[in-house]
Simulated scan of single mutants.
Amino acid sequence: MVLHDLRKYSFWGLLSLAINLMYTKIIFPCALLVRRPAHIRILGSYSIGRGFTSGPGLILDVLNDNAELLIGSNVKLNHRCHIGVMKSVKIGNDVLFASNVFISDHTHGSYIGDMQSNPLQPPNEREIVCGNVEIGDKVWIGENVAVLLGVSIGESSIIGANSVVTKDIPAFSIAVGSPARVIKTWDKAVEKWVAVS
Score class of each variant (00 low, 15 high):
Glu143Gln: 10
Ala180Gln: 01
Gly49His: 00
Trp12Phe: 15
Val190Leu: 12
Ile183Arg: 08
Pro56Cys: 07
His79Lys: 15
Lys192Asp: 11
His82Met: 09
Lys184Tyr: 04
Pro179Gln: 05
Asn20Ile: 08
Val176Tyr: 05
His106Tyr: 15
Leu14Ala: 03
Gly84Met: 04
His4Gly: 04
Ile153Trp: 01
His4Leu: 14
Val34Phe: 08
Gly136Tyr: 01
Val95Gly: 04
Gly57Phe: 07
Asp187Pro: 07
Tyr9Gln: 05
Phe172Asp: 14
Arg181Leu: 01
Asn144Met: 04
Asp5Leu: 15
Phe172Arg: 10
Ser16His: 14
Asn64Ala: 06
Gly13Met: 10
Ile59Tyr: 11
Ile59Thr: 06
Arg41Glu: 15
Asn118Gly: 08
Asn78Pro: 03
Phe28Val: 07
Gly177Trp: 05
His4Trp: 08
Met22Ala: 11
Leu60Trp: 11
Ala146Ile: 00
Lys90Val: 10
Pro123Asp: 06
Lys188Arg: 15
Ser54Val: 05
Ala67Ser: 13
Asp168Ile: 03
Leu14Arg: 12
Leu70Asn: 01
Trp186Leu: 02
Asn132Trp: 03
Tyr23Met: 03
Ile83Asn: 12
Glu191Tyr: 06
Leu6Thr: 07
Ile128Arg: 13
Leu148Phe: 06
Val133Tyr: 00
Leu58Val: 10
Ser16Pro: 08
Arg126Trp: 07
Gly136Asn: 04
Thr53Ser: 14
Val145Ala: 01
Val194Thr: 15
Ile159Val: 08
Cys130Ala: 14
Cys30Glu: 07
Asp65Ile: 13
Pro179Asp: 06
Asp94Ser: 02
His79Glu: 14
Leu70Gln: 03
Asp187Glu: 09
Ser152Gln: 05
Gly13Thr: 12
